[in-house]
Design a protein around this nucleic acid. Structure first.
Lengths: 189, 189
DNA sequence: AGCAGTTGCCTAATACAGTTAGGAAATTAC
DNA sequence: GTAATTTCCTAACTGTATTAGGCAACTGCT
């Protein structure tokens, strides 16, 4: 019988596609095996278990997201950088909802350390170089941005802003405007 | 054999406790049956299926959260109301992580319509009465608050701010301060 | 109290996801 | 070309979800 040519990488990529199609929670070893027309047990030569599969998809998504963000930030600063950074997250979540959910998957400390998480944190700090914030306010601002972007994107994905005026796109633009204004005018403690 | 006295309400409450203990995703009909020392099939007289169970827990959590928010807002306005409202969400998520996750569970349109979702939206608008915002900016601001609070709370629950300075509590207070400043100083389009 | 009707929980059976053990064929290394 | 390794398979077991049908326990009426 011919071999299917399974590898951890191919399985991870296919798992990411599956996540985008049916949702990260519905990514299952069985569904993946069906996709490769292979028996379920065969995947266990390449993956530890289904947790391992999810972790790999999460790491893939975090890398992709970090790559996009790095691209978007290149050559930009100030509000321009802020908006570009924000849009990377939102656009990725809209194009790849399953992968975006994967990126929010809770990793073990070891996996988290090996992930692109650090790059994300660095880039958020880089965006804030365009504003006049000293520590600890800079860290507070990083957390604010992360919270707002993630919160918005996940509420939007859950359909929270659909079917109601104004358009989600409009709110997004105005919220990024507002955050820019806030960062330029950060209140003293 | 003595009857266990199951009802949809008792099952829902127990399911909510279970969610807080093991996580909303780990709430399973089987685990619930074990908790009542009853066979799994017995639950199906009271629940449609496991989706129904999750929906009921979500509705319970949304009601509890709305009740707390209504309490917290009574007699407050301006920044005071904003901070109280914000703390309701964060405190609830910290006390009841499983229920909080349930409250973010994607409901069917019918379930959503019957949920406390509308109360939440109304209260968010009430908080903003303390600030001078006309539509559509008021709606943008509602969405900003919802996104930021939810985002912060969910990143915090995922451990995002643990093990790093400054303390999460400090960031939270400063972020609420910052949002207050932003709402008082909302940028023109 | 005695009985009829209803309800609550049970047994049994099916389906599907996850996981492990051990085998045979295909590939690789020498 | 043979030995070693790798890949995929069959088989088996566990746990969760769900449905069908049965008997026991309660409820309400007389």
């Amino acid at each position: 019988m011919a071999r299917a040519g399974l590898t951890a990488e191919r399985l991870t990529r296919a798992g990411a596609e599956l996540a985008d199609e049916v949702g990260f929670d519905q990514v299952t070893v069985s569904a993946l095996a069906r996709r490769f027309d292979v028996k379920v047990a065969s995947l266990y030569s390449h993956l530890e278990n289904s947790q391992d599969l999810r972790t790999r998809i999460a790491l893939l998504a975090l890398e992709e997201l970090a790559d996009r963000a790095a691209d978007a930030l290149a050559g930009r600063s100030g509000k321009d950088a802020l908006a570009a950074f924000a849009n990377v997250y939102r656009d990725y979540a809209r194009e790849h909802p399953g992968r975006y959910a994967a990126a929010r998957f809770r990793l073990t400390p070891q996996a988290a350390a090996a992930s692109a998480g650090g790059r994300h944190a660095q880039m958020a700090r880089a965006v804030l170089r365009g504003y006049d914030l000293a520590e600890p306010d800079r860290t507070h601002a990083v957390r604010l941005l992360g919270s707002t972007f993630h919160g918005y994107v996940s509420l939007e994905a859950a359909g929270g802003f659909a079917h109601s005026a104004p358009d989600s796109q409009e709110s997004w633009v105005r919220i990024v405007d507002a955050l820019d204004a806030l960062l330029r005018n950060w209140p003293a403690p």
